[in-house]
Design a protein around this nucleic acid. Sequence first.
DNA 1: GCGACAG
DNA 2: ATCTTGTCGC
Length: 239
Amino acid sequence: MDPVTDTVPVTAAVPADWPTNEARARAVQDELRARVVLDEDGPPPGRGLVAGVDVAYDDERDVVVAAAVVLDAATLEVTEQTTAVGRISFPYVPGLLAFRELPAVLAALEALATPPALVVCDGYGLAHPRRFGLAAHLGVLTGLPTLGVAKNPFTFSYEEPGAVRGSVAALVDGSEEVGRAVRTQDRTKPVFVSVGHRVSLDNACAHTLELSPRYRLPETTRRADALCRRALAQVLAPG
DNA sequence: GCGACAG
DNA sequence: ATCTTGTCGC
């Protein structure tokens, strides 16, 4: 089974009342936010199955492809990977990224034979203008522990962490700590980690470091990013 | 009112 | 996210 060619349709995995406009999306966001769990530590880093998810688009042809890649956290070897293809159902609206990305991500996750103990997302969880970003939505919708690793500080601010790998600094919205800037490689720009669902911030940062032994971004996101791009290219190639 | 703004 | 060549470095 080649995950690039054996892809799953997005349709079935999406909740029946999934919003298609901004107003409805904000209402759904509020409903889901009420169900987030923030008082669990989450699975221990360094062992078990961890999934990375990512999405690639072709707005021109109205195609979206999501990838889910499961790694053995102890070895960072891939144990399973899936892709889902569908049509773009929501525009990019800052603060509502979950509604653009998650339908395809849910389909890819649902196609996995073995559910992971943790899902690492591209983007934010609790670090969000309304404290409920992409990773938090995915956690509530799947029930799985989730965390977000973003490449940019979004609207938040942070003090520069120390120069060595493992250094951290608070990511703040005013005086509130919404996440952490984590230096995953020496002298390299930090990544921005926040809690999604059923994971503590300390644990989320520990996982992020464990998953990033060589590059700035976690292996989970690197693998998922590469896979959804390849699958998108494959989908666009014939038609 | 205007700009900024994860991917 | 995506548009896009070569290039510097391990």
